[in-house]
Amino acid sequence: MIYVQILLVSLGCLFFIVGTLGLLRFDDAYSRIHAITKADNLGLGLLVLGILPSALSVPQGLKLILIWVLVLAASATASYLIAHYIKQHQLSKLPHGARPDTTADGQDAEPDPTNERGPQ
């Protein structure tokens, strides 16, 4: 059991590192959003799974799950908001030319929220 925990926690930390590396390395705002939202949420999920067995009691474990779900919902929406903000302010230099998705009145295709798993 300890080994599974160690594996999960180290994987979680790995994903956190990947997320931060993504944030630093990518030069375009959009790709940074992917790096943060995906990697970190996954990292946190693995971390929570790694911690669950050594949680003191069941309610504590449930609290950990609740924390993870809240972080998921919050960071998904945050990534949408920041993407919308960047789009609205043309802050990011579009790496490979303007994508033809912006229709005449500036209404772009509705970006599907990446992992919107918040409880519907």
């Binding site: 609740l66 809240l70 919050a74 908001l81 918040g118 409880p119």
Partner: peptide
Amino acid sequence: HDPILHGLTARLLPA
């Protein structure tokens, strides 16, 4: 009016 934000507020507020 921002649909996503309203959705989040509706769920995050009770929490």
